[in-house]
Structure formats: structure tokens, C-alpha cells
């Protein structure tokens, strides 16, 4: 029987990226500023994680303006939502394994 650790996805498992996907799993779209505040990340840090997730096809980013203010809306793709759910499942299996 495979160890639950083997179920963890390297792209998704990074803590901040998991946090991004957790927020996006709960909402249709989240703005960059909200993600930064909710996850207590800096602009650069969050941008890097979003780029990794976007390159992996797990999120999409829509850049636009609200008046003169630039806004970036982030949305999870279907693959991103599935990856997040799979990751949570793997984490829960790991916790159960440890608790035995």
C-alpha cells in the first residue's frame, strides 16, 4: 500500500500555493490584494506562487483596471480545484496514518 506522502503533489503542496487554492476553492474569483492579505504574503512572493500555479494550469489570472487602479482577479481552473481536493485528501490520509 502506497504511503500517503506519495499522494502529495509538489506543485500544489507548497504551503502558500495551497493557501491560494484554498481561497479559490471557496470563491468564484479572488483579487490579488485579498489573497495577499488573507495569506499574509508580500507582492513578490504571491506573484511567484501565482506564476507557478498558472504555468501548471491550475489557475488563470485576469488583469484589468478599476478606474485607474490595476486589479488582478485570480480564478482556479477545474484542474486546480481537482488538484486541491486531491491534495487535501492526501493530507488527511497522512494525518490518519500518523495518528495510528
Amino acid at each position: 500500500m502506497a504511503h500517503p506522502v506519495n499522494g502529495l503533489d509538489d506543485v500544489v503542496h507548497q504551503r502558500a500555493r495551497l493557501g491560494v487554492l484554498a481561497v479559490l476553492h471557496e470563491t468564484a474569483r479572488a483579487e490579488f490584494g485579498y489573497l495577499k492579505e488573507a495569506l499574509e504574503l508580500t507582492d513578490g512572493n504571491l506573484s511567484r506562487h501565482l506564476t507557478v500555479l498558472e504555468d501548471a494550469g491550475l489557475i488563470t489570472q485576469e488583469k484589468g483596471y478599476e478606474g485607474k487602479r490595476p486589479r488582478t482577479w485570480v480564478k482556479a481552473t477545474k484542474a486546480g480545484k481537482k488538484a486541491f481536493e486531491a491534495e487535501i485528501g492526501a493530507l488527511k490520509a497522512l494525518v490518519r496514518q500518523v495518528e495510528r
Partner: peptide, 20 residues
């Protein structure tokens, strides 16, 4: 650890839901 990570993710999720 995984358990603490899940708790943190749960808090993040709950906060987002309530903000929404």
C-alpha cells in the same frame, strides 16, 4: 505538520466564505 496545515487551510477557507 499536516494536521496544523489542514487547520490553517480550514481557517483560510472559513474566512473567505464569511467575507463572501
Amino acid at each position: 505538520r499536516a494536521g496544523e496545515l489542514l487547520e490553517t487551510l480550514d481557517r483560510v477557507t472559513q474566512r473567505t466564505r464569511l467575507a463572501r
